[in-house]
Structures are given as structure tokens and as C-alpha cells.
Write a protein that binds this DNA or RNA. Structure first.
Lengths: 166, 166
DNA sequence: GGCAATTGGTTGGACCGCAAACCAATTGCC
DNA sequence: GGCAATTGGTTTGCGGTCCAACCAATTGCC
């Protein structure tokens, strides 16, 4: 009686990964050819790979980008930072608060304009970023290796997409 | 007394955009060359363009992908769906619940396996998806136009990145 | 037939993101 | 100088996402 018709789709099990893995044949049929879908997958994979690599340091790409910008632009304000990393300013507030809580970033109220804040890396922040940067560099080399000599084209296309927002 | 901000139509005042726009020169110096960063920007732009286009229908790419897969695989289970759209199964639960609440999807308990659920589009779901699909197609054509005849290469590279997750 | 392992699905917690509303300080303009 | 508009920054609300833990039903195996 219990006809196992419920296991309809072949390929039901992926005993390997508990959660996410490559898309099913199902998706490949349906969503293949949709650039947006693959953009998401690639972005996700990159993010995940970075996070996994950072490991001990436990700072994801968002924090990394912020710290790099702060290092290279000491005294930068949150607003300018938000534009640099292309995140909403309301996203940056908790981000820098977290970095401050971790003693990686200092926030100094400006004397010239009492609304604004200047961000700089603490010494611990510099050291941490040094460590993190090794992982980030490895990550970049990994990505670069994957795309090989087509990187310039890829970058060009991605930039074109990002700039074309209607 | 002045409620300047309530002019919510985007692009109201700002000498740039009230929120997100293209990266600053700052970022270009710091983050340029980082594939991961540009992947995020492109993915973000695509997502945003889709959402903006869908407009009236108010279904973002996630819902769209789910509905397409359900249409093409009527009776599919949430787990299979989650693999098809490459989202965690715990993400799919509220997603389909929302679609059910909107009367776009029906969830039928399986008789064969009393744990599982079969998903199908309702008639309203079919109609809504038809409408949504026009926007989605326009979105795809837009994206395709941006990348031009380099689309195959782009897709290949993106797929390579997504598949390379260590 | 019975019990352990597996599987389908949900729940809870944490994080991240945006938009809008808001407050405080500054600038622009008469 | 004074008042409206703008700007820097925070808060609040909401949605999306993952992971881990969980429950219930089913399968595997003896």
C-alpha cells in the first residue's frame, strides 16, 4: 500500500552536505540561463568561502571591507564609509559599533562638526586586519585562479551590470 | 515642522542618491580588483532591478524562483524546492507559508508519506506568475542586453565560482 | 516486529540588510 | 540674526538567510 511515490524526483538525497550544495538538476532545468540566479550563487559561494577561510578571526567580508577602507582613509566618517563599501548608512552604524566593541576601531567625535564621527583603526585593529588580510589575499588568489585570465572581462561585465541599475 | 524626508519617492532631493549608488572613488581605490566585492554589487543591482520592475506584483526574485520551480514541478516538496532554488530548507518554510497566505500556492499533506507536503500553484498563483513572468523576462532581456554576446562566458565563470566552494 | 538511523518539516536564535522616521548640528539665504 | 533646508548619524521595523535543535513519520536492519 505505501507506494513510495512521494520520492518523486530522482536524486532525492545528498548525504554529503547537511544544507546547501550545488543546485539540483531541477533548478538547472528551471533557472538555468537566468543570470540573476547565477549571480546569487556565485556571490554566495564567494562570501561563504571568505567566511570559512577567515575562520579564527571571525570577520566576514563586510567587516573586512570596512576595515580596509578605514585603514586607507583614517578619520573617515561613517557616511563616507557607507558610500565606499556601498552599504546603507543605517547598516554602517551597527557595523562600526561592533568593531568598536571589539576594540578594532576608534570613533572620535569631530570637534569641527559636532555631528560627525571620525573612524580609525586601533592598534589591535591594525594587527587584526593584518592577519585577516592574509586570509583575504588567499581568498582573492583562489577566486583569481578560478577565473583565470578572464578576470578582466568578468570584472568589466560585473561592473557594467552594477552600473546599469535603472 | 518641516517634513522634508517624507518625500519618499526615491531620488527626491539628493545630490547623489539618498541611499545606495555607485561606489565612491574611495572604494574604487580600496576595493577595486576584488572580485567578491564586484560580485556583490552586481548581484545587488540585479536583485534591485528585478524588485523595482516587479513593482505592483511585489514578489522578489526569491518568490519568483520558487513559483517557477513549483509550476514546472507541481507536487514538489519543500525540501526538493529548497534544493532547486539553493536555499536552506528552513528558509523555504516561511517562504511557502507566505505564498500560501497570499493564495498563490497550495500545500497538501501527502497521503503516502504523512510527513511531507506537496506544493502546487493555485489558479491565482498561475495568473500572478504569468504577470510576474513578463517583468522577469524583461529583466532577463535587460541583463542579457547589458552583457551582450559575452553572456555564455559570464555564465560559465559564475558557475565555475559557485561550484568551486572549497 | 522492534528499534536505531534517516528524512521531511518546523522552530528559535542570530545576523545582516534596507527604508523610513527621527534627532541634532550645520549651512544657506534673506 | 533667524529660519528653513540640508546633512551626519541613530533608531526602529521588517524581511531574508543560515544553522542548530527539535518533532514526527518512515526506512533499514536484524
Amino acid at each position: 500500500m505505501p507506494q513510495p511515490e512521494s520520492d518523486n524526483r530522482r536524486n532525492s538525497v545528498d548525504p554529503g552536505r547537511s544544507t546547501l550544495s550545488a543546485p539540483d538538476p531541477l533548478a538547472l532545468v528551471d533557472l538555468e540561463g537566468h543570470l540573476g540566479f547565477h549571480l546569487r550563487l556565485a556571490q554566495d559561494a564567494s562570501f561563504r568561502a571568505f567566511a570559512g577561510r577567515a575562520g579564527v578571526v571571525d570577520l566576514r567580508p563586510g567587516r573586512y571591507a570596512a576595515m580596509v577602507v578605514i585603514r586607507n582613509n583614517p578619520g573617515i566618517t561613517p557616511i563616507a564609509l557607507s558610500r565606499a563599501i556601498v552599504r546603507d548608512k543605517s547598516t554602517v552604524t551597527p557595523l562600526v559599533q561592533d568593531l568598536e566593541r571589539r576594540n578594532l576601531v576608534r570613533r572620535d567625535r569631530s570637534t569641527a562638526d559636532r555631528r560627525s564621527v571620525h573612524l580609525t583603526l586601533t592598534e589591535e585593529g591594525e594587527a587584526t586586519l593584518d592577519a585577516l588580510m592574509e586570509h583575504a589575499d588567499a581568498h582573492d588568489r583562489w577566486l583569481d585562479a578560478i577565473v583565470g585570465d578572464e578576470k578582466p572581462q568578468l570584472l568589466r561585465l560585473l561592473r557594467r551590470i552594477a552600473d546599469a541599475l535603472p
